[in-house]
Structures are given as structure tokens and as C-alpha cells.
Nucleic acid binder design. Sequence first.
RNA 1: GGCCCCGUCGUCUAGUGGCCUAGGACGCGGCCCUUUCAAGGCUGAGAUCGCGGGUUCGAAUCCCGCCGGGGCUACCA
Length: 378
Amino acid sequence: PYRQSERVDLYRQHAAKLLAEGKAYKCFCTPEELEAERRQAQAEKRPYKYSRRCLIDPPKDRIEFTVRFKVPGGEIKFTDMIRGEMTFDADLIGDFILMKSDGFPTYQFASPVDDAVMKITHVIRGEEHLSNTPYQLMIVDALGYERPSAYAHMPLILAKDGTKLSKRKHPEANLVLYREQGYLPEAMINYLALLGWNPGTVQEIFTFDELVRVFSFERVQHAGARFDWEKLNWINGEWIRAMDDAELARRLRPFLKQLDEATIMRAVPALKTRMVKLSDAASLLEYLWTDPPSPTLDAEAIERVRAAAAALRDVAWEPPAIHEALMRVVEASGLGPNKTFMPIRLTVTGKKISPPIDYTLALLPKEVAMQRISSVLA
RNA sequence: GGCCCCGUCGUCUAGUGGCCUAGGACGCGGCCCUUUCAAGGCUGAGAUCGCGGGUUCGAAUCCCGCCGGGGCUACCA
């Protein structure tokens, strides 16, 4: 079982062992009493450590208790793969709680027990756990287990405000969000790898396999790194542009439920350089399933559309043929291409921004396109 | 408060005593390309290397102090 809630017996057994060996003891103090101790210490400007009153003189008339670890004191040393030799003074650490009064373990206890029982060799986690390591090491030692062979504490990913990412305050901590918006897993891995680590070369785009090959703990940063959406966006765009059309079409499917596969496939080349994330495709192609409002065009614009409509009537409905026909209209007009293209774009999509006009038209069934065009000519 | 970690362009970073008048990337500005928007190409601005003292012929790089930020310090994980 991997859930802590399904392994409570395991923690209870380990706690019982420590209790039996006198390496832990029951504490009957109430939260209020502990709070009072803490305030007292603060008032006297002395660092707080649990008083050990329940070790020295436990009350007889109480039943609810927690299990506290009897901190042996002394120096705790270990090697961190990123930061080197670490030494902590355990005399500064008060007896901490292993089992809560509800019978569940604290993280500080469950974590080292899990690591030992699961035979974890490398403990790689965020820097917020650096100061927790001595706590956990003391437990591993007290339990008589072998210590994990290596620890590595990675720099924190910080929010824009410079504090540790938290689910409450920072939406970017929520992984589901990225999938929903169409950030590619490849891009996420790529970006996250670059946050707090660098290869020592100018390469920025990495596949997972490449990362496995070049990653090294020696090159990971010691300072926290701020999460930067802009850079993620760029990397995601790079991955989108580099992806082959069929694969991109496949990934686009959940974001373009209104369209059939063939249409998505035909749209891909036009979409590719215009998306920062997959969800961007929807607004670009919205006109395919939603009739745009009819635009207000001046007389000249209407003339341009009229000329285009005539030229398109007998044309094969593919981007090259459409392009050719439209360019003839543009040349005949003696005006810039935009004078013709923009009014068409506006009538067909309702927007000033769209893929190139030949693609924009070709993606729409010819009848629908021609109907939208003729509606402004009436 | 105590303990721990950290401090180079706005951001991610290169840099381990001279190659640094501090390099790259994202973002930002300009130009080019152009059918709008992107993409692409070129180009520019942007960091007195947190501050102050040392050491040294020479320091972003070594030492000390200070300041600043973050983390841990819970019957959260």
C-alpha cells in the first residue's frame, strides 16, 4: 500500500517499538498547554523546546496522548548531493511528535519509516526539507535502519512574489492547469528542468532522454528560482513548432471537439506558428463552427469583396488555388493585398486576426465561405 | 526570536583570481520579411556582479562583517 492512510499499522508498530525501547514516550499535554509553553519561551526570548514534562512527570489522569520522540541530541551530519556536508545541532531540536492523538503519524515520522521500509536509496526533494532531514535521520537511526545512501535538496520553485509556490496562493502550483491549457508534457519537463539547473551549454530545448543523459547534481543551483510563464510559453511554442503535423493534430483533438479529424489535420500547418499553447487553437478556428456577426464595411471594401467573390466562384477549394485567384484580384485592383484580404477576413471570421486568408477560406466548406461573403454584398 | 539555505540584467542563468569594457536565453524596443496575426532573420537597450571592509600586482570569483530574501521551527505535508 502506498497511501499513508492504508499503512497506519506500520507506523503504529514502529512507534510501539520506539516506545518499548524508551526512545519515545507518551505525551499527554493539551494543545493549550503547549501553546502556553511556547508563549512563555517567547516572552523570555529563549528558543522554544518542549519541556519534557510528560517524560519527567506524566499526569496519571489523562487518556488522550501523542507519541513524542526523545531527541538524543548531539550532532547530526549528512552529505547533500547539492550542498555538500551538512551539520545540524540536535541539542536545539525539541522532542517532536511522531504519532498524533488521532492515531495517525506526522509527516516527520511517516516519511523516514516509508523510506526505510521501501528501501529508498536516493531522497531527492525540495529545499524546504533540508532542515527536516536531521529529524528524519534521528528516527532512522533510532529504528536501527540503514540511512538512505544519498540526499539531494533541490532549490525551490518560487512564485512571482518570491515565496515558495503554494496551492492556495499560486495557481501555477496546480499541474492540472497546464494540461487543461495545452502545455505539452515535453515542454513542462523541459522548462522545469531548466529552473534551477543548466547544462553548461547554450542548449535550451531538451527531450526527456537528453535530460537523463546530461543532468547532473553538480550543476543544480543553490538558490530558488522564480517561475516564469513567459519562458514556459516560449518553450511550449518551440515544442509545438517542432512537432510533426499528424502528432500535433492528435494532441489538438481535445481542444477542438467541434471539428473532425480531417479538418484539424488541414488546419495544423496554419496553426503551428500561431499557438503558444494548444488551447489557443480554439479562438483561431472558432469561425469554423460559429457564424460571425456581419461586419460593417465601407463601399470600397465591399467592392473588393465583390471582386474576390467573382474570382473565387469557380476556383478549386485549396489554399494554392485560392491564393492564385485572390492575387489576380489584388493585382487588378492596383491596391495593396490587405485592402482585399482584410474585408474578406472580417466577413468570414469576424476577426481582424486569422491565419493567412487562403487557409482561412479553404478550411471552411466552400458553400459556407461563399455564403458568408455574399451576405455582405446584398 | 532560534537554526539552515541563498544573493550576477525584469526573469532563468554562464562565470570557480587575469580570456569580463560580465556571455547566453526569455521578455522588451527597432529594422527586415510580410496578407492580418504569428513564426523567422538582423539589431538595440538592459547587471557599477546586494552593501562595506579586507587579501592580492589583479576579485563577480578568496576571507570577514552587515543588509536583504527564502525555508524550517505545528498533534500540515
